[in-house]
């Protein structure tokens, strides 16, 4: 069953289409990530679902109820903001209790929920503190605890980890994933960080230019990028794209009809006795792999190889595509279905 259903939602801002008829469904207990570069409209979509912004067209359904025109408080959602938005004039405990107090829950339930949420986020020692006395990571924890305390139908998160430093972000990421899996809260999570999206999501909706171009499980998004853009945006290093030339045949793959470009992941190229010959221009030793950059015609080709044997710059390598790993794209940049 879909908890969030978005049907043909559009948003225009000063004559500019920020969202172009977006449709999306988030299933019950699903962790869905909206992924896209900045300015793609993902935060706008999230804010429309929250009721913080008004859509120009289309319908938004939450828990089977059409919520167009309803105020945020009537939607039974909770939201975590990028800059945490922890109320500075309240203690951590009051922050967490705020939502329940507004809903006039009885004191015993509030106390119990505050304790539970604080324990989940490991901030039970901070309940008496004010926001100004907290670090960024702690504020983030308060923001999440505050959102969980109201036991919402849907949890909306807007780049919640982007203001944390790298180490803390990794820590919070795995903690969030474990916690939300356990709570089974339906979550829609906005980020521009593809690793974050890959690691957290049950399904990823990739957005670009106000449209969702692919909505699928991380594995499928990675393996079958629906467009050039998705292949280039997800994966580090990104997918290689080579225009349909002789190079394909040398790699051991043949182009179907209508194919304009070949997409292949750097790790799906293997050394072979015969195939495409390249000269390694740059070799980067990354520990678990070595990344080789070469030039094929006018295009860059990145290859990820195991670190044995070590490759040195200028070395000639012969490559072959791993079977079944080549993807073909039409002139419009869209994935061609396997023939």
């Amino acid at each position: 069953m879909s908890v969030i259903q978005i049907d043909a939602v559009g948003k225009e801002f000063k004559g500019q289409a920020v969202l172009k008829s977006v449709s999306l469904d988030v299933r019950e207990r699903e962790f869905c990530v909206l992924l896209g570069p900045s300015g793609c409209g993902k935060t706008t979509l999230l804010r429309i679902i929250a009721g913080l912004e008004t859509e120009t067209g289309g319908t938004v359904t939450i828990g089977g109820r059409r919520v167009n025109g309803l105020a945020p408080r009537e939607r039974n959602i909770a939201m975590v903001f990028q800059n945490y938005a922890v109320f500075p004039h309240m203690t951590v405990g009051e922050n967490i209790a705020f939502g329940l107090r507004m809903k006039k829950a009885d004191a015993a339930l509030i106390a119990q929920q505050v304790k539970r949420s604080a324990e989940m986020m490991h901030i039970e020692d901070l309940l008496e503190r004010y926001a100004s006395q907290l670090s960024g990571g702690q504020r983030q924890r308060v923001a999440v605890a505050r959102a969980l305390a109201v036991q919402p139908d849907v949890l909306l998160m807007d780049e919640p980890l982007s203001n944390l430093d790298a180490l803390l972000r990794l820590e919070m990421r795995s903690e969030l994933k474990g916690l939300l899996r356990e709570l089974k809260t339906t979550t829609l999570y906005v980020t521009h960080d593809q690793t974050e999206a890959m690691s957290l999501a049950d399904r990823i909706a990739v957005m670009v230019g106000g449209e969702i171009v692919q909505h699928a499980a991380p594995h499928e998004v990675y393996r079958q990028p629906a467009t050039h853009f998705v292949g280039g945006f997800i994966g580090s290093p990104p997918m290689n794209f080579l225009s349909a030339t002789e190079a394909h045949r040398a790699l051991g793959v043949s182009a179907p009809a209508g194919a304009a470009t070949l997409g292949i992941r750097p790790e799906d190229l293997d050394l072979a006795s015969e195939g495409l010959s390249i000269d390694a221009k740059v070799v980067e030793m990354l520990g678990a792999s070595q990344q080789i950059t070469a030039r094929v015609g006018n295009e860059l080709l990145r290859v990820s190889l195991g670190i044995d044997p070590p490759v040195h710059a200028g070395q000639r390598l012969t490559l072959r595509a791993r079977a079944g790993c080549a993807r073909w794209y039409g002139a419009d940049g869209k994935l061609l279905k396997a023939a």
Partner: peptide
């Protein structure tokens, strides 16, 4: 955002 957070938490 402080106000918006309030709205999502049950405030008019």
């Amino acid at each position: 955002e402080l106000e918006e957070a309030g709205w999502t938490m049950g405030c008019s």
